[in-house]
Amino acid sequence: MSFLKPKTYIEQGDIVILYLSVNSMHAIEAVPTIVNKKGETISHIFQTPYGSLKVESIIGVEYGSRVELSKGWAHVLQPNPEMWTQTLPHRTQIIYTPDISMILHQLEVRPGAVVVESGTGSGSLSHYFLRALKPTGRLHTFDFHEARADQAREEFRRHGLGDFVTVYHRDVCNLGFSSELDGAADAVFLDLPAPDLAVPHAFKALKLSGGRFCSFSPCIEQSQRCIAQLTKLGFNEICSMEVLQQESVIKTRSLPVIDLEFLKAPKSAEIIANEDNKTKEPKELKKYLTSSNPQVLPGHTGFLTFATLPPNIPKS
């Protein structure tokens, strides 16, 4: 239930982020026992490089606390969509925070909004939609893969978000969004291999008072076809973009500073004598607070295409 609102103490059944380091975060369920592969109920022990955690011990602990592992320690954090995208079980390629933030902004999602999403995928973006539109809005999310839709539905329930979402197993390219959703949506989001096929359905789902549209595509040709379809149906404010986030690597570096001035003057016999022992060329180290990019940056995630359906466009 730990996704509904900020909370102070870990309760049984919460998803908890076990934070070991920037590169090592794990989402664990705060239950004292689990059922193993043999069907036996056993104590829930979570293994980390710093030793094991008896999960029962964290129930009742305050979020943000340090917890002891058998060979070290970690922190327990309350999950939110950002941490969840970094720790969730990948069932598909997922979209990450920089793109998602732009999607929420451009789709103008806020409490009360009705959002249609396809496909649900691993539910990374769905969690963001839900945070933004609850407690007064609703997410309708579609996936053509039945097992994925089922998993997502169950996950939302366990995360305390079940009241604000409907998960559909449906091939929206061929069948459209269900007719109950005609004219119901403030915003439609598509992450599909052929978004252009779903654009007419998005058109139908958006409110008569207008709304916003977004399609996320890895390849430019998908965006091109999508835009052709959007233009045809009277969408405007069509624009495509990429958002690429860069991390700064910040560290204090000791850098050599060499002196060459001394070479202008002949060495005195004294210095020469010393040099024969072990004198070095003058060189000192100076400390700098430096920042640089990581060696490898995200070069592309996808093209985001946004559009507006203006008000009062006849729907048939």
Partner: peptide, 20 residues
Amino acid sequence: LRTYQILPNRTHPEVNMSGN
């Protein structure tokens, strides 16, 4: 420096790029 995959229906900038 951005390199591109240019293939029929699958054109996009490469997913990774050199940072420095």
